[in-house]
Write a protein that binds this DNA or RNA. Structure first.
Lengths: 201, 201
DNA sequence: CAACATTAGATAGCTATACTATCCAACGCA
DNA sequence: TGCGTTGGATAGTATAGCTATCTAATGTTG
């Protein structure tokens, strides 16, 4: 398809498509002549992933680029790839330190694995710090509530990976980490709303 | 305390504190003389909330302002306030439409309340659209998995509100909606990590 | 009490992000 | 043949979120 068609079908302006190509986030179309290039369904799919990550997830382009790189050339074992995907998502933390006291205590309490090199540890620490700074409850009881729910969800999310090829699994893990989160959060907000509006049920 | 002390204790540069005051996000200190103003613990707490929402939650200042306004002058019933708090969080959706087919189906399936005026409905619709655009599974089975977990979490979160004054409840609901989410997400990521690293448990 | 630092408040400047717009020569199409 | 479209390059724009500078007044310290 032509660039104008790619633009129409994806909803992304031509100028922006060109911009993404310049930035190396989208491969060039296959040059057919000096003024024509051919784009295919892969281009369209890629563009839709970019749109999902920027518009819905609200990620900065630099992070979107990181995520695309993980999908394109999965290097390292799954745990390492997951770690990098997590690092591309908010809350953005600086370089890893070697001690995260709040996260460490929480993780120990929940029986999870404390690995200070895994970005989510720093993210949890940050999140707990923010909670306390704002004067909200971050007691073990509250943590357990979230921990149990998330452990259950996570187990079910990992199940389908069993039957996948490596590249499929990487795409699923990377995009899934980023894109199931908004769904989950929207459902939590809807559950609050539902319970307030219709407490009987 | 002096502005320099406020700055030190909050970790926010003096120039930035002045900027927040200019922007109306932080009240002026009480003027003691032409070159001195006195800041108190409320200023410090407010600054910490701003920092939590911008740094950890990554919200744009305009949204932080919206949230602070809700806490400062809670207008309307709790459901309406919750709705406005949710509207200040990503995914940011434009004005409400009157039909959200994907969200409507999901909500019906989960037995929640479909109210197209509640922002989370539009957010869910967006999130589901993004999921499909990226080629991920958004089947009823997947939705139920998240829906059940979130309904359970939400019920436990609402419980403590029973014994609160209105202003306390509003602060809890508004800040809680924004600040428990990162904790939950970090725990989900940690659960994935844990299951990958140590599948036996 | 002199000298130096600090402050409030105002204004201007800066940096990064994410696009948009313009331009040109080379096509494609009617 | 002429008008619109394209690829590719370059330049410009809009916004957000600070950061720096300036002035006059005021603390503060040796």
């Amino acid at each position: 398809m032509k660039i104008s068609e790619l633009s129409e079908r994806s909803g992304v302006p031509v100028a922006t498509v060109k911009f993404y190509i310049r930035e190396g986030m989208l491969p060039r179309g296959e040059a057919v002549s000096a003024t024509r290039a051919e784009y295919d369904d892969d281009h369209l799919a890629r563009l839709r992933v970019i749109a999902a990550l920027t518009d819905v997830r609200g990620l900065p382009l630099a992070r979107v680029r990181d995520i695309l790189a993980l999908i394109d050339a999965p290097a390292g074992d799954p745990v390492e790839i997951l770690g990098r995907a997590v690092g591309a998502l908010p809350p953005y933390v600086g370089g890893t330190r070697d001690n995260y006291p709040l996260a460490r205590a929480a993780i120990a309490h929940l029986g999870l694995t404390y690995d200070p090199g895994f970005t989510a540890v720093a993210q949890l620490d940050e999140a707990l710090r923010a909670l306390e700074a704002a004067g909200l409850d971050a007691s073990p009881a509250v943590l357990r509530r979230y921990g149990e729910a998330m452990r259950q969800v996570a187990a079910e999310e990992l199940a389908p990976m069993a039957g996948m090829r490596l590249d499929e699994a990487v795409t699923y893990a990377v995009l899934g980490t980023a894109l199931y989160e908004p769904v989950m959060l929207a459902l939590r907000r809807l559950a609050h709303h539902h319970l307030l509006v219709d407490p009987a049920v």
